[in-house]
Amino acid sequence: MDLIIFLVFVGGAYLIGQHIEKSHYKEIEKKESACLHIPSVTSKKIVNLDEVLDAKLVFGNVVISGDYFKMIVASLLNFFGGRVTPYEKLLDRARREAILRMKQDASSMDADMIINTRFEMSKLDSMARGGGGTGMFEIIAYGTAVKLAKK
């Protein structure tokens, strides 16, 4: 009986987790194509600073967590080693979402570009009293939004 409950729990987590992941990827792709006019680069020497009219620190953050299915797959993979694909996808989603939020922040000041983009990540697991070790992360992307003088 316990096993059935366990399987239902894991199966449910898998199905719902997959659904959330797919719809999130769709949303990310849609938003990414809408934000193409504000490129974000990691370099800071890409623009001539004399041509910059305005600069502001912008950031975007996402707190994301894994599910029970991911946790179990990860613990199995931990035994054999190798790539932990479920978590790779999770972190990829979170980073892209953080960049999109940073771009949204930048579009409020009509920025042309975000330079010196940096990522920061921290594990927040012990923040959730109810969370059962599925892994909870905060990802933040930040950079300097610049407005260039029009030629």
């Binding site: 987790g17 994301i64 923040m127 959730a128 009293r129 969370g131 059962g132």
Partner: peptide, 21 residues
């Protein structure tokens, strides 16, 4: 915190914590 604990089961974004941070 409780809502986040439940969402933890299925994964995905934890909006409450995103806004908090």
């Amino acid at each position: 915190d409780c809502i986040a604990g439940c969402q933890n089961t299925f994964g995905g974004e934890l909006k409450g914590y995103s806004t908090l941070l």
